[in-house]
Design a protein around this nucleic acid. Sequence first.
RNA 1: GCGGUUGUGGUCUAGUGGUUAGGACGGUAGCUUCCCAAGCUACCUACCCGGGUUCGAAUCCCGGCAACCGCACCA
Length: 510
Amino acid sequence: MERAGMKYEELYALLRRRGVLWPTAEIYGGAQGLYDYGPAGTLVKRLLEEAWAAWFVGLSDDFYRIDATDILPEAVVRASGHLENFTDPGVTCAKCGNHFRAETILEQFRPEGVDGLSPAQIGELLKQYPVRCPQCGSNEMSVPRPFNLMFGFDFGAAGGEKAYLRPETAQSSYLAFSRMWDVGRRALPLGIAVIGKAYRNEIAPRQVLFRMRAFTQAELQIFFNPAAFPLPFASVAEEQLPVLRVARRAAGEETPEPRSARSLADEGLPEFYVFFLVHMYRFFRDVLRYPADAIRLFEKSDTERAFYNRIQFDFEVKLESLGGYKELGAVHYRGDYDLSRHSAGSGKDLSVAVSGGERLLPHVLETTFGVDRNVWALADLGLVIDGERTVWRLPPYLAPSVVGVFPLMKKEHTTEARRWQARLRDSGIEAEFDSSGSIGRRYARMDELGVPYCITVDRESLGAPSLEARTVTLRDRDTKQQERVTLDALIVRLRASRVAPRPIPLNAVE
RNA sequence: GCGGUUGUGGUCUAGUGGUUAGGACGGUAGCUUCCCAAGCUACCUACCCGGGUUCGAAUCCCGGCAACCGCACCA
């Protein structure tokens, strides 16, 4: 078997055909950057979210998952910095059509920047100075228009207030910090995780799940004392990470080099930061089962980093369908940026008491994970070609269904196969029944959907004297091997396969 | 957002002014078949949307929408 290595359009067609996802409002011609999940996609996505929560939230008894609204009042996004950073005025060249930030164009004439100026005022400046297009040299620069990447709207019936769809789920965790401090143990580190939708009005949505206007993030914000973040670093120190640091990038390198966690800490990265690099790396490699040689930890430079970050490594994975490395997650050290901004914005003191009666504004370490992008990556990396068959080698705990139930012969075995399906359902195991076409066709259908097991009722299944003695054949998706199993043995096997890996909790190690 | 290319069943496609819009794969049903997309039969499903030109438009023109590629953007 070899990796299918499907090209973009082929993979997208497969996902549409199998009911994984499709464009929103497809009958109206679609809408840029919006996609809906079908039955299979909904299940995979949900299981992926659960696996993420088991791995990240399950890391500590003091990490909690909350569910928060998508809508943020204007005061929140003003304090967070998203309002100013999301509304950079843009300028378009009338000749070559290229788009630039007004700040860039006016830089040499107006070093103090353009913050706080209205588009009309910037338009005046463009006329006032001899500005030229950096691309083609033309002097026909258009009147600027707001360049807003947040969806904003009137809030309240009177329409006097504004609100925004959250541009990242992280904000919901910051808003919850104060309340969660009281709900939890009043101790650091405290983790607050949110899985939910975030929204960005992207200029040019592309590549389906990679640049969406409404997308699902799974983010864990860990609030901690930078002077004391107890972690079992020794337990991860020898892990080798495929890293591409800024210095090597500057030398033109694009491939990562194996680096031990310890050596990264020796270079000055905080141990707590490296610890979570390892944690996320293991999630990609061991839980999602991405090939280790496709993963790259890509350090972002000063100029590339998001405005709130001090340290940022993107987790990139090489995807055949998209022709290169794509960001699927990241670990961000955000310092005390967020809580200090929200302290100032809300007027509420968000510092907490730590040992010795001292007060401290906690720092934030963020792990962020793009759920939709990873659904795509699971398909890209998991699909293999075996002769005529296309097999989606999803980990069983991420598969849309765990087992298919077939009669070997439609006429003779359908009734009994239906009974097996009902027995599995009674045990809480959803089973897909299929009797159409030949047995090989049914196996193939399940293979393409990533269903890891199929059972088949045959002549021998009907012959047994008691239910306990009754058996079916159990067929493994990846090996195509079959064995005869009883109902009890089957239930045990299927249940075990549905459990996603969990980490050793930090509290247990202390 | 700019430029280029493109839009025919679920998927891949033939058709370039008048076709019963053809094929393959797929799906459904039946027959057959005791285990990996077999075979036979029947059936199912399409010209992105809106205008215009024309006796007549899937085909030509305009507008819209969407997708792909390149550029830009990606906080």
